[in-house]
Amino acid sequence: MTPLLYASSGVAVFAIALYRIFTAGDVLRKIIAANLLGGGVFLILVAIARRPAAGIDPVPHALVLTGIVVSVSATACALALARRLEGTTLDDGDDGDDGSDDTEVAGRGP
């Protein structure tokens, strides 16, 4: 019974996180939602790890470990970028899809 409980809670967490990541206005809320999204999937992975016949199946755990590593690095990257934005929200200044009004794009980068 418990694997079903874990799996369904995992799905629920995933659904909520998915909803929030698209609708949250603030950058930090989005990043947290992204983390939760990862958490949800890992919960499901762990839930399916129980093989009634052969006991615990190690592969999902390996997957979860790798997943966590990836998720952490993605979150770190997102936070670093968020710090640079200092308060402007994601959609600020996002007036035209091509951002034609912004300052001249001087060729700085290679």
């Binding site: 698209f22 989005k30 959609d91 899809d97």
Partner: peptide
């Protein structure tokens, strides 16, 4: 097009 590029519509 502008509408489509927002988060919510993409979701």
């Amino acid at each position: 097009e502008h509408g489509l590029s927002g988060f919510a519509p993409t979701g």
